[in-house]
Amino acid sequence: MNARLRLFIPLLIFAVVALVFLTLEKRIGSGEYDPSNLPSAMLGQSVPAFNLSRLMDAEQVVDAEDIVGQAALLNVWATWCIACRAEHAYLNELASQGVPIFGLNYKDERAAAVQWLQRLGNPYRLNIFDFKGSLGLDLGVYGAPETYVIDAQGIIRYRHVGILDAKVWREKIEPLGLQWAVAQAQGAAL
């Protein structure tokens, strides 16, 4: 190699590194990437098997089959979670439009959770009471709120960490192209 050309190697390496930084900054700027948000390891996989009680009725058992069958949201929430309260109104709105939402009540007190739903409204078709956080662990939940988008086959298609709002719905969940319209028809059954 020409000796002069060899001196360009450091510049070349720097250019590559700078390009990486530029891409990162752009992806952060566009909201595509957030270094503090971890992509879910469960994307593309089925909802893990579980066997837990319903929030509203400790005697009744829920398993994965109860929530699989249509495109739906699985929302992880708890009464100790302040941000959950902030997103609750939007969940109510989505539910009223007929979007099926299942709740995963995560490491919470049963009585307090029931009271919360009575006071703020219940957007959930069904609530799984996960006192020990075992389903949470299998899903890779690391905080609340988190919302999982599940398709009709029970495959996890997307996970949102943090407050779910209209912007997230429009920019992240709608582009997944799931058949929410079918759900709308079923919404009458609420």
Partner: peptide, 8 residues
């Protein structure tokens, strides 16, 4: 752990 939280 990796199955649930990724290689992260």
């Amino acid at each position: 752990m990796t199955a649930r939280y990724g290689t992260f």
